[in-house]
């Protein structure tokens, strides 16, 4: 029995869909999560204070450059690296294209009307991702050094809650960075025939290691984003005297 008469609508209007699930939850949660982090990180960077507590150094300020010629917070000498790395990251591109650009907001949901060019023209700058990768890899090393230094208090070796927070932070950021698609390409993805090139087996193994992390790239992107913010907040609160760092050893 018929209940509606209509011409076949091949193209959906903005936000139109036949989906009956809560498709809007994911882009909304993504948008709120990213916006909250951006607000906090921007504030945390502008403050320019309370970024050190004992042997702990906030990852927003690491490595710490205190130079006379720089008028702003030292965080801005660093944050362009993780900021650029995450902004051009293939996962985050998906996240903000869906959440903020609404192109598309979700699968099978009408996209925002626009003159769509994809990642051509101005968005060719997304190809800079591989250039942000190199300093991001250096940051992983530096964050591990920070985590190791967090074991050494003024009274000698020890472990505080902040030590554990910094170790987890270094591990999360390492796992996120090691799953980078550009790194995957660099270490072996660009090889067509592994048995035909020098170090082919080693490059294939390296590619498999990066692939291992890459399979959970989205998960590590969110875990590391949350944890790096939490790490800064923890050190900030300890530095301000709001909370006391518990010494385990």
């Amino acid at each position: 029995m018929s209940d509606t008469t209509t011409s076949y609508p091949a193209r959906l209007d903005f936000l139109e869909t036949q989906r009956q699930d809560n498709w809007w939850v994911a882009p909304l949660a993504t948008g709120v999560g990213l916006f909250a982090f951006i607000v906090y990180a921007t504030w945390g960077a502008f403050v320019g204070d309370h970024y050190q507590a004992g042997p702990y150094l906030s990852p927003f300020y690491s490595p710490l450059f205190l130079v006379d010629w720089w008028p702003l917070s030292p965080a801005f000498l660093i944050l362009w690296v993780p900021g650029g790395f995450r902004f051009t990251c293939y996962y985050y591109r998906k996240a903000y294209y869906r959440a903020f650009v609404l192109s598309p907001p979700a699968c099978s949901v009408g996209a925002r009307p626009q003159r769509y060019n994809g990642e051509r023209a101005i968005l060719l700058f997304q190809n800079l991702h591989r250039y942000f990768l190199y300093p991001a890899l250096a940051l992983v090393v530096i964050l591990w050094i920070d985590a190791i230094e967090a074991f050494f208090f003024s009274d000698g070796f020890g472990i505080g809650v902040g030590t554990i927070v910094l170790v987890i932070n270094a591990y999360c950021l390492m796992s996120f960075t090691f799953g980078c698609n550009s790194l995957r390409h660099l270490v072996g993805g660009n090889v067509d025939c592994y048995s035909c090139v020098k170090f082919g087996q080693q490059r294939f193994k390296a590619w498999k290691v990066v692939t291992f992390f890459n399979k959970n790239h989205m998960r590590w992107a969110w875990i590391s984003l949350f944890w790096v913010g939490f790490t800064d907040l923890y050190i900030r609160l300890v530095s301000m005297g709001v909370i006391t760092d518990l010494r385990i050893i």
Binding site: P104, N117, E119
Partner: peptide, 15 residues
């Protein structure tokens, strides 16, 4: 083939 048009929003993978 216009690969630049893809903005990697991954709906293809989902379906």
């Amino acid at each position: 083939q216009g690969i630049g048009y893809c903005n990697i929003t991954k709906c293809c993978t989902e379906v």
